[in-house]
Nucleic acid binder design. Sequence first.
DNA 1: ACAAAAGTGTTTTTCTTACACCCATGA
DNA 2: TCATGGGTGTAAGAAAAACACTTTTGT
Lengths: 230, 230
Amino acid sequence: MASYQQLDRHLVAVDCIIIGFKDGQLNLLLIRRDLEPYRGEWSLMGGFLRAAESLDEAATRVLLELTNLSNVYLEQFHTFGSVDRDPGERILSAGYFALVDQVKASQQLSPDYSAHWVPLTDVPPLIFDHNEMVRLALRRLRHRAKHEPVGFELLQEQFTLSQLLKLYEAIFGQAIDPGNFRRRLRKMDYLEQLDQKDFKDSKRGAWLYRFDAQRYEQAYDQGIPFFLKP
Amino acid sequence: MASYQQLDRHLVAVDCIIIGFKDGQLNLLLIRRDLEPYRGEWSLMGGFLRAAESLDEAATRVLLELTNLSNVYLEQFHTFGSVDRDPGERILSAGYFALVDQVKASQQLSPDYSAHWVPLTDVPPLIFDHNEMVRLALRRLRHRAKHEPVGFELLQEQFTLSQLLKLYEAIFGQAIDPGNFRRRLRKMDYLEQLDQKDFKDSKRGAWLYRFDAQRYEQAYDQGIPFFLKP
DNA sequence: ACAAAAGTGTTTTTCTTACACCCATGA
DNA sequence: TCATGGGTGTAAGAAAAACACTTTTGT
């Protein structure tokens, strides 16, 4: 077995860009940092990588600590490795973005971190390079949303097509023609129309749908990729 | 300033998936590992992250050591963080893929690593999770090649449209209609047709082109994105 | 003359886009 | 009855796919 005594060892963290959606708006879950330096400043939720866990496990743990959610869409998008990104000591950080059901998450937020949702269109200055992390995560989200059915992670299990439309308008930051949007969705067999309607937003009521992951897999295997654009 | 005495510190490496193109084939530059365990096995070129360098700098250095090339297209695509990916000791690794001019690189390869080019369609078993790294890198390359003009990094500065066609066929692993491919390229003003022809592959000769990065930037800023598909 | 690579044109079909239109219902 | 959100249909145009066709030149 090799000996690596003489090599540099590094502190490694994970930081989570936790994204939710509510009232037609994408939101980001931030905390107030409780360590020096910059105690009390806005920060992403993060944590240090432990010897016995993988990066993915660390991100999952950190997300669980704050939101008490598991089985969440979580994707590593970039590892930030500048020498001086943290002015205190050098820390590498793997950035993960998480797509959560904001309603569910809000109900069970840990009180230990002074966490708050802020609109993704209006993110305050964050510590270190966290603003850059958010920018990159958002870019990745836009891309994923186009090519993979990840949007549903941000909605309740049952949703109306209008809600989905508003979600995509928020993600892409531009208006989408409702007629054309609906037609594209109609072709997706894996969007299952339920027998219930939602009456929150209209008198007539809008049909509720759910995303059937299993049926999507089948479609995907048959070479029908997901695609939705602005 | 905070004290992080009690936290776990980690060995961090970078591994480079170095991709070249020659005679209609994509190739991968591998070395014979010179450390135990697995001395002599096929491996990606890699190196440990030093205290005073960023991840990007480490990848650049590692690439330079082997190929003596700088100013190369280099992109981080994923950081691999399983606890037991290296059976010796835990090592995190940031994966970078590099697109190089294989002709140029081959001329100046460092003799210290027993490096060899192997066809990307026929990669031998590699140490650790390196095969998985290659798989992910290739997936990312396919994506980049579609949406960004990175293919040119794999060709000499001057190239014919036939060479470009063969490159894209190799990247996507499928035949492309030459007529339609040419038409798409004709619309890209940033492909500058030179006054010379190449006579290596045909008697008639094929016009040489070069990619004008500056003109591409202009087109991009005007909202004309690069797009080429199989 | 003909094989082989280089390069151009044209037709057919498919997909987008833009927008007009109908439906249901509570105030 | 009319404003509002929900939902469908369609005609014009753009873009992709398929493929026939011409050019050039060494053998």
